[in-house]
Amino acid sequence: MSAPRRPLIAIPARLASTRLPDKPLADIGGEPMIVHVWRRAIEADIGPVVVAVAEAAIADAVRAAGGIAVLTDPAHPSGSDRVHEAVMRHDPDRRHDAVINLQGDLPALEPAAIRAVVAPLATAEVDIATLATVIRHEAELADPNVVKAVIALPPGATIGRALYFSRAPVPAGEGPHWHHIGIYGYRRTALERFVALPPGVLERRERLEQLRALEAGMRIDAGLVDTVPLGVDTPADLARIRQILSDESKR
């Protein structure tokens, strides 16, 4: 199996958010948040971008900006399932051999980070790629909302095999700990296999979807990046990202 030649970026988006209702349509500098994320994906310049939406209102916003939106079943249990349906609808002829699953609440994500998630797929045995960065603050290590990636990373390497993911501060002993960043690159066949799997025992225990793949024997490799992108989950996050992007636009 060779490195993917024609990746496709898919961004799942739905309006149902308990902490920030209608989050994809939240205004940031005069445009919906989902449009900012779509623009970042376009700037990564690794392939076409499709927004996998649960509601027509998000599709309308994306199309008004010139993007491609695919309406999917609102009842999907996860973003991965939504992405899979959108990819099947958009590319039934299977022209694209890899799918980058990009979260729809990362409007300040650097395009370089999107490109970085493709690199681990150059190794033939890798089914799924993801990203991580070093944890620099003790508070993050103890925070269950910060997912830790256990990565077999040789000295000097920037890509390593992910052996586990946890909300607990693992592994024990001296050495760096890695903050998992939930952006994924799937080989097309790996995505199809993943969404067909039943939820795993450890997945349910940790509430981490990626453990389903590891339990099934799929290989995940993680590439290192410098920072954690700011996600928007609360009104406070939204206010912060508005300020950040406003400052960027003035430079």
Rank of each mutant, 00 (worst) to 15 (best):
A44V: 06
D45M: 00
P74C: 06
I28E: 07
A69G: 07
I42M: 14
V53F: 05
P74M: 10
T72W: 01
V50L: 13
A56T: 11
E55N: 02
V53H: 02
V87E: 07
A61Y: 14
G66F: 10
P77D: 12
E31G: 01
R40P: 01
L25N: 08
E85W: 07
A54K: 11
P21M: 12
P24R: 09
I46E: 03
I34Y: 04
A26I: 01
V87T: 11
A65H: 15
E85P: 12
W38I: 01
V87H: 09
V53L: 10
D22G: 04
V49W: 14
V53A: 11
K23T: 00
P24T: 11
H76L: 08
S78F: 12
V50E: 04
V70W: 10
G79C: 05
H36T: 04
V49Y: 13
W38Y: 14
M33Q: 11
E43P: 03
S80H: 15
A75K: 14
A54H: 13
K23Y: 00
D73L: 08
I58A: 03
I68M: 09
G29M: 03
V83H: 10
G30H: 03
D45Y: 04
E55M: 05
I34T: 06
T72S: 05
S78Q: 12
I34H: 03
E31M: 08
K23S: 00
R63F: 00
A41W: 08
A54L: 10
E55R: 02
D81S: 14
D73F: 09
G67F: 02
I68S: 02
G67P: 07
I46P: 04
A64Q: 15
L71M: 10
A75Q: 12
